[in-house]
Design a protein around this nucleic acid. Structure first.
Length: 457
DNA sequence: TATGAGGGCGCC
DNA sequence: AAACGGCGCCCTCATA
């Protein structure tokens, strides 16, 4: 029997229907047989099961919001948005809904007649796209463009975070998401209603929103961030000698990669060289091809091709690993993380090359992203166990998990004692003996709110 | 008024 | 055209 559930939180009735049984006990048997068959009992018993109460507690604790901050931001950005709209309408010579891609496209591409040489079209309807990367191409062409981009950013943040979030807090001012433990195909968790795994962080405006996520009085927020964990995982999964050496040396990984690929001494690595290395370092783990690389780097095809080749000629172990992962996934129909978590694929059976290529990219990413998910899940449960043993359950609370980051709320007087312990637990889920000596590192920061955190230690 | 598709974008 | 993995949610707009 091939089980294809595709549901992250099935109700009991749905489980019974799915297993075609009437009794919960029988359904349980059937599901465990399936786990056994897929070699997933260990993942369930050792990673997911101990995590169940931890996720439950995290959902129930919630995070305190400062409504005042949201109110101020709301007033400020509503006003700015109105200003922008007025200016945009004036420059366009017509009043229209700036938030409507259809109307905006009409204004930009027909009325104003703007067009860059590589203006992309949308996938389904073939209209000229107004997405940010396309508008960037027109930034210097017309003064309306920067106004639209600012409008986009503010409208997004206002509509998605600033207005909705404070309306969702409970009587005590706390906001509760639902973390879904089995929310993704790779093993990562998901967060819903609201999603607290995509709170803005990139721009200054975005970070202001994080300042509204505050510590309970008497507590501090303490955040632990795995540093470049996916790339470290790629290094030890692939066994790539050079990449492993880079991490063992503990230097700036993107700069070090640039130094190797461009064949220049570390101190001669330019900003641009580092930027390019960073793009490909990330791209590799997503199965990026030359074309996507070219697009991201903003270079021509030839240069991107050369860079791509240099990269894989430098990191031959990584190249070999990626090839083998693709091949094994196609042959077996699934991939496995370091801990044995599987992801199954249908795409390899498809006659359509595009579908098979998509399956290959997913197969490249799944073991890396999935191992990251395994590691942080193990850490969450181990930290919880530590807090239990040390009788710290009323002093330290896990609030959020954001894939490679854990945010705890810690009684002020305990931060300096507890933070190093949590850091240590996180870093030793995988000891050096299991990572081919690649260190797993977590950076710690502390603050009264999530927007202004200071490096700890 | 409710629903789903489409375009778009926030995070890791 | 898409061409880079994993998510959830917003607004618009057509349709029921």
């Amino acid at each position: 029997m091939v089980i294809e559930f595709g549901q992250d939180r099935p109700q009991t009735e749905e489980i019974l229907e799915f297993t075609k049984t009437k009794k919960a006990d029988e359904a349980r048997q059937i599901l465990f047989e399936e786990l056994k068959k897929k070699n997933l009992l260990k993942i369930f018993e050792e990673i997911e099961k101990p995590l169940l109460p931890v996720v439950k507690e995290m959902n129930e604790r919630g995070v305190l919001l400062d409504k005042n901050i949201f109110k101020k931001l709301s007033e400020k950005y509503r006003a700015r948005l109105a200003e922008l709209e007025k200016q945009i309408w004036k420059l366009a010579g017509v009043n229209f809904n700036v938030s409507s891609p259809k109307q905006l496209g009409e204004v930009l591409f027909v009325k104003l007649g703007l067009k860059a040489k590589n203006q992309k079209k949308t996938a389904k309807t073939g209209m000229l796209s107004t997405k940010e990367s396309e508008l960037e191409k027109l930034r210097e062409v017309h003064q309306i463009i920067p106004l639209i981009l600012e409008h986009r950013e503010l409208a997004k943040l206002l509509g998605t975070y600033i207005v909705p979030l404070p309306a969702l807090v409970d009587k005590t001012g706390r906001l509760h998401t639902t973390f879904i433990q089995a929310g993704t195909t790779t093993g990562r968790m998901a967060s819903r209603e609201p999603n607290l795994q995509n709170i803005p962080n990139k721009t200054d405006v975005g970070r202001e929103i994080r300042e509204g996520f505050v510590a309970t009085p008497g507590f501090e927020l303490v955040s632990f961030d795995y540093s470049q964990i996916e790339l470290r995982i790629a290094a030890f999964l692939s066994g790539d000698k050079k990449l492993i050496e880079i991490f063992k040396a503990g230097a700036d990984v993107h700069a070090a990669v640039a130094s190797r690929v461009f064949n220049v001494p570390l101190d001669e690595v330019s900003k641009e060289m580092r930027r390019r290395a960073k793009v490909i370092n990330f791209g590799v783990m997503y199965g990026m091809g030359v074309n996507a690389l070219r697009q991201q780097l903003g270079t021509d095809r030839k240069e991107a091709q050369k860079f791509y080749e240099n990269y894989f000629q430098t990191f031959v172990g990584l190249a070999k690993y990626l090839d083998e992962t693709r091949a094994a996934a196609a042959r077996r129909g699934f991939t496995e993380t370091y801990f044995g978590r599987r992801r199954y694929f249908e795409g390899f059976k498809s006659p359509l090359p595009f579908i098979r290529a998509a399956a290959e990219r997913m197969a490249i990413n799944a073991p890396i992203q999935g191992t990251e998910a395994d590691v942080i899940k193990i850490a969450m449960a181990q930290v919880a166990e530590f807090l239990r043993k040390e009788k710290l359950l009323e002093k330290v609370f896990l609030l959020l998990q954001v894939h490679d980051e854990l945010v705890y709320e810690t009684a002020e007087n305990l931060v300096s004692a507890v933070a190093p312990k949590i850091k240590e637990i996180m870093e030793n889920v995988l000891p050096l003996s299991e990572t081919k000596e690649v260190p797993i590192v977590a950076d710690v920061s502390v603050g009264d709110n999530w927007g202004m955190m200071k490096k700890f230690g």
